[in-house]
């Protein structure tokens, strides 16, 4: 193991490591901690210039209550859910199929199609912006959740295919051959042999795509406009103009917007990291 395990060092350095660890964490998360404190402060603190001191009163319920009951936030949050969940399902479904096709079969153009998916994934969004917006307008899907969902599914399929294909590649090929010898139809091999083995990959991709889509801002402002369809990342800016300079409200709103992916991450941490670090180890 590198660096040398702290247990093999002197007591003094073990002790200082234990002390320094929480300090380092607090320093690292300082901006976030500040916002959490912001969000439970009363309005008066900011007027008086008490930005970074302790809250003069505990206004957690008051501030968060207003986020949920006196703003469009719940609507934006719901929109985010209705955009994110179908995208996750769509992208994972499409990419398990492409992953299967590219990972199991040898055919002309296999690598070419695979690299087309990877390359498309690296492209700057901006080069897609004008045509995709135009397409969405022409399909009468501008400012609808469906318009966003369709684009997200298509774009995420690139990354998901890379992931799924490499995962299926690593499965024992003999399983598929054995099924073929038995005369099982190819699509049944996919459904009954490969799909059950893909559960960890599906879990990893689901959390990952959930986070990516939930946090998307660019496409949200390109393809949607108002509280009817905009997700929470775009909604937060509207929320902020409603509460201009009311830092306690803006912080509470930001925290509410950030919580679902954080929750997902802690719930499925192992899968999340497995997905993110794909290929980081050989």
């Amino acid at each position: 193991m590198f660096p040398t395990p702290i247990q093999q060092r002197s007591h003094a350095s073990q002790f200082s490591y234990q002390v320094f660890l929480p300090i380092a964490l607090i320093l690292w998360l300082l901006p976030l901690i500040a916002v959490m404190i912001f969000s439970i402060k009363p309005d008066g603190d900011f007027v008086k210039g008490n930005f970074w001191g302790l809250p003069s009163s505990f206004e957690f319920f008051n501030n968060y209550g207003r986020v949920f009951f006196a703003s469009d936030m719940p609507q934006y949050l719901l929109n985010s859910v209705f955009i994110t969940v179908p995208t996750v399902i769509g992208a994972v479904a499409l990419s398990s199929m492409t992953g299967f096709a590219l990972g199991v079969y040898k055919f002309r153009g296999n690598l070419l199609i695979f690299f087309m998916f990877i390359a498309g994934n690296f492209v700057p969004f901006q080069i897609l912006m004008v045509p995709v917006r135009d397409l969405t307008v022409n399909l009468n899907l501008y400012d609808t959740k469906l318009g966003l969902i369709l684009f997200h599914i298509a774009f995420q399929t690139g990354f998901c295919t890379l992931f799924m294909r490499n995962f299926i590649r690593a499965l024992p090929y003999s399983l598929i051959e054995a099924a073929r010898v038995e005369g099982v139809a190819e699509w049944k091999i996919f459904v009954y042999v490969v799909l059950p083995l893909m559960k960890p990959a599906i879990a990893a991709l689901s959390v990952l795509i959930f986070t990516f889509i939930w946090n998307d801002y660019f496409w949200a402002i390109v393809l949607t406009q108002g509280p009817d369809a905009q997700p929470v990342t775009a909604g937060i800016t509207a929320f902020n103009s409603q509460y201009r300079a009311a830092y306690h409200m803006m912080s509470a709103g930001s925290i509410v917007a950030a919580i679902p992916p954080v929750f997902m991450f802690f719930l499925m941490q192992k899968h999340f990291i497995a997905g993110l670090t794909l290929g980081a180890v050989k």
Partner: peptide, 11 residues
């Protein structure tokens, strides 16, 4: 894990 929008606001 937090969206860049929120990180941007925080900063």
């Amino acid at each position: 894990v937090i969206s860049q929008v929120v990180v941007g606001l925080v900063f």
